[in-house]
Structures are given as C-alpha cells and as structure tokens.
Amino acid sequence: MDLALIAAGVIAAGILIYIVLDGFDLGVGILFPFAPDDRSRNVMMNSVAPVWDGNETWLILGGGGLLVFFPIAYSTVLPAFYFPVMLLLFALIFRGIAFEFRHSAHTSQYLWDRAFFGGSLVATFSQGLLVGGLIQGVTIVDHRFAGGMFDWFSPFSVLTGLGLVAGYGLLGATWINMKSEGETQAWSRRAAIVMGGAVLIAMLAVSVMTPLIRPAIAERWFGGVNALILAPVPLMTALNAALLFYGLFTNRERLPFFSAIGLFVWGYIGIGVTMYPNIVPPALTIWEAAAPRSSMIFALIGVAITLPMILGYTWYAYSVFKGKASDHGGYAKH
C-alpha cells in the first residue's frame, strides 16, 4: 500500500476543508467594514462566532499533518515562507481575539472591528502569497531549504494573494446571504456579485501565468492526452461560475454558497494536478518527503478512527446553529 499517497490525500482533504470553512469566516471579516450598518455587523459576527474556532483548527491540522506525514516538507516550506507565515500568524491572532474582545468591549468596539477586518484581510493575503510562492517553487538542497528569504515575493504571488482575498470574500458574501435576511442579505448579494467577478478574473489570470512561469507545467496541462483528461477542470469551474451567478440573480439562498465552494474545489483540484507528484515544487516528491513507515502507520490509524468522528461532530455543531443568525447574541440563556 502506498502510504505516502494516502497521507497526501488526507492532507490535501484537510487543507481543502480548511480553505472552505475558514475561507467563509475570513471572508466575513474581509467584508466587515463594508456592511450597511452595525446591526448587519452583529449578524455577521454572530453567524461565525460559534464555528470559527473549529474552522481554524483545520489549519493546525494542516501544519501538524505536514509535520506528521511529511516532516521534510514542513521543515523546508516554513523557513522558505518565514515572513508570510509570521504575517499569517499575527493576523490570525488579531482576528481571533477580536471575537471575544468585541463582545466585552463598549467604547472600544471600533478597535476590534478594525482588528477583525485587518486580521482577516492580511491572513487571507498571506495565505495567497503562500499558494503562489509554492506553485513557483522552493529551492531545496539536501532536504534543507537553500533559497533566499524573499524568493516567495513576485507579481505572481501578489496576484494569488489578491485572488484569494476575492475568493474568501465571495465565500463570506454567499455565507452571509444564506445566514441573514432583509437589508443585510440584499447587500451581501451585491457584494457576492462583485467578489465573484473578481474571482473569475483572478482565476483566469493565474491560469494564464502559471504555465508561463514553469514550462513543465505547460507540458503537464497541454501535452498529449493530458489536455483531454484535464478538460473537466475548466469545464466544471465554468459550470460552477454559471450556477453562482444564476443563484445570485434569482435570489437563491443556498445555491450561491455551494457553487462558490464548487469553484474553490475545482480550482484546488487544478492546483493539485499541477503540483502532483511534488509536495513542494519543483522537485520534492511526496515519497521523498514522507515520514518513516512506523510514523505513517501510527498516525494513519489515528486519522482513520478520529476523522469520521470529527466530521460527525463538526456537522452536529453546524446543525445546532443552522438557520438565520440573529443580531443579538450572547452566552446566557434567554
């Protein structure tokens, strides 16, 4: 059995779940200052307050998972992206504490509103920098990072950064559309249309630039039968985009959110087939980076037992808070 491939699948799934779940709550933060009024902002905050913590846990699983299954990927990627990773962590600190502090604040509430917005925006942008920097490739010699500290910085990574801001913004807007009513909902639909347009432009630009920065990727995409096998990726992306706008213009509540998730899933699959079989492009493969067999087996058994339970109670936690979010909320019984 190819344990490295299974482990790569587990991590890929974990990161995808992270992107979708934390994506919408980071997106809510990105849109926060643009909401029509304070009542809407309370609704937005309350719609994610019970779940953001669980969503962010998938990021710890991403980092922890890399350390578990691919220690060489972990110990090369993190030094390579030292500054974006630190920026991400600081940003997440600010937005994380904003939830609790805003709740307790009175006159200083505006401060935590800004922390929530700024933190969400910077966290998303630095995640986008990471994605772009990773696609460009990381210099590795003898299983150690051997590049420069600012290798990740390029027009391409800035583009993926901005693209991800639009993408999470779209997830956030369609989430608010599902969880709110009235004026807030109408505003969120307009926001989703703007963000959706920006996402499509960014996806197109990234798709044009990616094969240009690495010729091997052009070969992967367009060489021989590959073009035919990979054809569903752009086709499904287009279909999801069509469903998204159809849903938004016909005032559907759920369809836009799930089409936005679809857009992310197909974009993610696109990046996945571009990178495979490398875990750190251009040359570190999943087999080369893999942990020893005994570590893999121990951790995979743990994943097999706990992951279904985690998915089960995550689903339960979401179902407890299903329906529209209210503009007042709190800890006490009422």
């Binding site: 669980g54 699983l61 570590s295 743990g302 985690i310």
Partner: peptide, 26 residues
C-alpha cells in the same frame, strides 16, 4: 509530529466543536 497530530485530532477538534455549543447553545 504524530504526538502533536493526535493532540489536534483527539483534543482540539473536540474542544473547538463543542465550545460553540457550550457558549452559544443554551
């Protein structure tokens, strides 16, 4: 790695998942 991985899998998700219910689920 696996020890920290088990912490995330068995503990963090459980805490985070039920914290929402504990705080907002009355």
């Amino acid at each position: 790695g696996p020890l920290i991985g088990f912490e995330v899998l068995t503990a963090f998700f459980m805490e985070a998942g039920f914290l929402g219910v504990m705080l907002f689920g009355w």
